[in-house]
């Protein structure tokens, strides 16, 4: 299940649409980083609204994506973590450390736009 990546101005939006295997997550990481380089993106949004489970592998992969994108001088925002998923993550002891999160796509875009304005 490949995750579609949409280019929206200076930003990339990856919308996860179904449960992802570990290989799918690795593929997403590679595709996002490649596209961020190709388009000189300033920010990346990963929409996880449709994710049924966020386990240790998925969290680690999102952290890796965020760090790689950071090295390119861009920001990553995770949007749409469902309340039940958040509850399970906390119980499991997972955090997304310093990756910014937002309620939904709209808020995520607003966050990135704000960051761009502040740095220009």
């Amino acid at each position: 299940m490949e995750v579609p990546i949409l280019k929206q101005g200076p930003f990339l939006i990856a919308t996860i649409q179904a449960a992802l295997s570990d290989a799918d997550l690795e593929q997403l990481r590679t595709a996002l980083v490649n596209q961020a380089v190709r388009y000189r993106s300033l920010g990346v949004i990963v929409d996880v609204t449709a994710m049924d489970v966020m386990d240790s592998f998925a969290s680690r992969m999102l952290l890796t994506i965020s760090r790689m994108i950071r090295l390119r001088g861009a920001d990553t925002v995770i949007v749409g973590i469902q309340p039940d998923v958040a509850f399970a993550m906390v119980q499991l002891g997972l955090t997304l450390e310093d990756i910014p999160t937002a309620l939904d796509l709209e808020e995520g875009l607003a966050y990135l736009q704000q960051r761009c304005r502040n740095s220009s």
Binding site: V53, D55, P83, D84, V85, F87, A88, Q91, L92
Partner: peptide, 16 residues
């Protein structure tokens, strides 16, 4: 649904 998510997450870790 919330408990089912906890269970699914635990299974994901164990199976991995």
């Amino acid at each position: 649904v919330s408990e089912a998510t906890l269970i699914a997450t635990a299974i994901s870790e164990l199976a991995r």
